[in-house]
Structure formats: C-alpha cells, structure tokens
C-alpha cells in the first residue's frame, strides 16, 4: 500500500472561525506506477491535502496511512518523509542553507549519505534541473524565481524518494523549462516506475502527462478518474471551474468553424493533426 486516506478532514487552528480545508477525503494511491494530477479552484484544499501525504500536517479527523505507517502525533515521521518527497508551492520556504550546494546536500546527508556522496549527488541533480555548477556556491535567496524553483526541485530529487509530490511544479518556469521539467518527472515515473503526484492549474500538464486526475472543490474530492473522462465531459469542466487543454480548445473552434464533428478529446499535436486530416 502506498498512501491511503480514510475519511480524512482537516481544519486549520485559526483564531476566528473554523472551516474545514479538506473534508471527508477517501483516497488510495499506489506505491508505484501512478502519475496523478490534482486540480481545482483556488483554496479548494489541494496543498492541504498533499501535506498530509508526507506528514507535514496531521489529520483533524480520519486516518492517513503512508507505506504502512499510520500518520499520528508521536509516531516517528522521518521514515515517511524520506520515502515521500515534496516540493512546496513557494520554493523559497524550502530553501534555508547559505549555498545552493549545501541546500541540496541537506536531505541526502540527513538520510545517511556521506559528505562525498552528497556532494556528488548535488552536482548530478543541479544539471538535471537545467542549472550549471556555477550555481552551487551561490546563495539560494539571491536567485530569480524560476531558478529558486529549480533548486528546490533539485533538493528533493537528490533524496531519491519513492513517491514524488510537487505543488505547482511548473509555476515560475519559463516555457521550455516547463516542458523539460515535466519530461523529467515523466522519465522518473517511467524509468523507475515511481508514483508522481502533482498539483497544477495547467490543463495541458494534466492532459499530456497524467494518467489519473483528482479534482478538489470546496474542501471535497469531487472527481477521481482519467483525464479523458474529465475533459471529455464539458459539464464537469465547467462545474469545477477548469479549462480545456489547448489542443482541445483549438479543435473545438475548428469544429465550430467547419461545422464538423471531429473528435475533440485530442491531447497532443499528433492526435489533433490526425483528426484534421479527416476534414
């Protein structure tokens, strides 16, 4: 078993009012082989939900189980954090060392690698995220927004977690960086059969990469299925305030203009053009 939510709810302990940030979530995620996208309206509970998956938050009600460890107060949570790596929505809150190199080495050192090994790891992952070694001695706080995100991702990759969770990993990356980063996650998923979970507002990321999509709405999980079943159903897309992926949008306009009935659930350029040949 990978990650299991059993009727999980969570409320933030704020002074004023109490509102559930997630409510009655039931969910089961396999330890390997999944590439899941979590989508939904601003404030719907996505970040809150995934922070339960590596024990950064503990449920107010219900049970969370990660790799057979029940996530409760007092339980040892380090094994969970080692196996489930998470990149935050705001990468700056993940960075804290004085150099990029030390920052990346922190996780591996913590989980038992020698200094030499951790150094090597840092050199390896920095180039994987599209930065060169000149960044290693720099302060992680004197970087551009996209560079910070890349360093935060590098730090988690260096830990080689079994499950990789990314909160809006493409935000702040330049367009080519977005594609490269998604291809990187895809290759980790495919090569090592790892489960990758990502939160995103980018519908192209969902349609082009995910094999399962979870929709959150007002603290509740309202959809759990395939991208085709989601985007193929216009009413759902509207109800959940989502949008269509770009190639579907193009196809829709073309069907309209040509008064044709080509298949609109096209997720990539090839499929779109294959349909267009029928015009």
């Amino acid at each position: 078993m990978g990650i299991k939510f059993d009727n999980v709810s969570f409320e933030y302990p704020t002074v004023n009012e109490k509102v559930f940030a997630i409510k009655d979530i039931n969910l089961s995620i396999k330890p390997e082989g999944e590439l899941i996208a979590i989508v939904g309206h601003t404030g719907s509970g996505k970040s809150t939900m995934i922070q339960h998956m590596n024990a950064l938050l503990l449920p107010s009600n219900g049970d969370v189980d990660v790799f057979g460890h029940k996530v409760v107060k007092g339980e040892k949570l380090t094994p969970i954090r080692k196996r489930v790596g998470m990149v935050f929505q705001f990468p700056e809150y993940q960075l804290f060392e004085e150099t990029v190199e030390k920052d990346i080495m922190f996780g591996p050192l913590n989980f038992g690698l020698t200094k030499e090994e951790a150094k090597e790891k840092a050199e390896e992952v920095i180039s994987i995220v599209g930065l060169d070694e000149s960044f290693l001695p720099r302060s992680p706080f004197n970087l551009s927004g996209g560079q910070m995100r890349r360093v935060a991702i590098a730090g988690i990759l260096a830990m080689e977690p079994d499950i990789l969770i990314l909160d809006e990993p493409t935000v702040g990356l330049d367009p080519q960086g977005q594609i490269e980063m998604m291809e990187l996650f895809l290759s980790i998923h495919e090569k090592y059969n790892k489960t990758v979970i990502l939160v995103t507002h980018n519908m192209d990321v969902v349609s082009e990469y995910a094999n399962r999509v979870i929709v959150m709405k007002k603290a509740r999980l309202v959809f759990d299925g395939s991208p085709v079943d989601l985007f193929g159903n216009e009413k759902l897309v509207r109800d959940y305030d989502l949008d269509l992926p770009k190639y579907m949008k193009i196809m829709k306009v073309l069907n309209d203009k040509f008064d044709s009935k080509l298949d609109e659930t096209v997720f990539n350029l090839e499929d779109l053009v294959t349909e267009l040949k029928k015009l």
């Binding site: 939904g40 309206h41 601003t42 929505q89 927004g145 809006e168 935000v171 702040g172 507002h201 519908m203 305030d241 989502l242 949008d243």
Partner: peptide, 12 residues
Amino acid sequence: DEATSMLDPRGK
C-alpha cells in the same frame, strides 16, 4: 510580476 501564476483558469 507573474502575478496570476497560481490562479485557477477562471481566476486568471
């Protein structure tokens, strides 16, 4: 400066 990068599609 990338002010809407984390908004949902409708919000954007």
